[in-house]
Simulated scan of single mutants.
Amino acid sequence: MLGSLRGTRLAAALASVLMLFSTVAACGSSGSTDDAGSAKPAAPGKAWPVTIAHKYGSTTITSEPRRIVTVGLTDQDAVLALGKVPVGTTEWLGGYKGAIGPWAAGKAAGATTPTVLKDTGTGPQTEKIAALRPDLILAVYGGLTKAQYTTLSKFAPVVAQPKEYNDFGVPWQKQTEIIGKALGQESKAESLVSGVEADIKAAAAKNPAFAKSTAVMATPYEGIFVFGSQDPRSRLLTGLGFTLPADLDKVIGDEFGANISKERTDLLDTGAIVWIVSDTAKDEAKLHKDALYADLKVARQNREVYIKETSDYGNAVSFVSVLSLPYMLDRLVPQLAAAVDGDPATKVPAPAA
Score class of each variant (00 low, 15 high):
E186A: 15
G253F: 07
L236F: 06
E186T: 14
A182S: 11
T214F: 09
A205V: 10
Q173T: 14
W172G: 06
G241W: 01
K188A: 15
V216C: 01
A205S: 15
P245N: 09
A205M: 09
P208D: 01
A198C: 05
A189L: 03
V170W: 02
S191A: 15
R235A: 13
P171W: 02
K201H: 00
E197Y: 00
L236A: 00
L248V: 14
A189Y: 07
G228K: 02
F210K: 05
P245D: 13
Q185D: 00
Q175R: 07
Q185S: 04
A246V: 15
R235G: 01
P220F: 08
D254C: 11
A215N: 01
F210P: 03
P245E: 09
D254Y: 14
I252F: 00
I224H: 08
V170P: 00
A211R: 02
V196R: 04
G257R: 03
S194Y: 11
F225T: 13
G253A: 06
S213V: 05
F242M: 06
S194E: 10
T214W: 09
K174Q: 14
G184F: 04
R235K: 02
K206T: 09
E190V: 00
E177S: 05
T176Y: 10
G239Q: 07
W172A: 06
A204Y: 13
P232R: 04
T214H: 08
E222Y: 11
V193A: 04
F242V: 00
T243P: 03
A205T: 11
G195K: 14
F242A: 07
G239K: 00
K188M: 15
A246D: 13
Q230I: 10
I179E: 08
G184P: 01
K174S: 13
G223C: 06
L183E: 03
V251R: 02
P171M: 00
K206E: 03
D231M: 12
G223S: 14
A202L: 10
F225M: 09
D254W: 06
G253W: 11
N259R: 12
S194R: 12
A209P: 15
T219F: 10
D247R: 05
K250M: 13
A246K: 15
R233M: 00
S229N: 14
L248T: 06
V216T: 08
L248W: 08
V170G: 06
G228V: 11
T238F: 14
M217S: 14
G223V: 02
T214S: 15
R235S: 04
L183V: 01
E255A: 15
T214A: 06
G239D: 01
D254M: 09
L248H: 12
N207L: 02
A218R: 09
V251S: 00
A202Q: 02
D199W: 07
G180C: 05
E186M: 13
A204V: 12
G228H: 01
I224E: 10
K212D: 14
E197P: 09
T219E: 15
G223T: 02
I260N: 03
G241K: 01
G180N: 07
P208W: 02
W172H: 07
A258S: 14
G180P: 12
G228D: 11
P220S: 06
L237E: 12
A205N: 06
T176S: 11
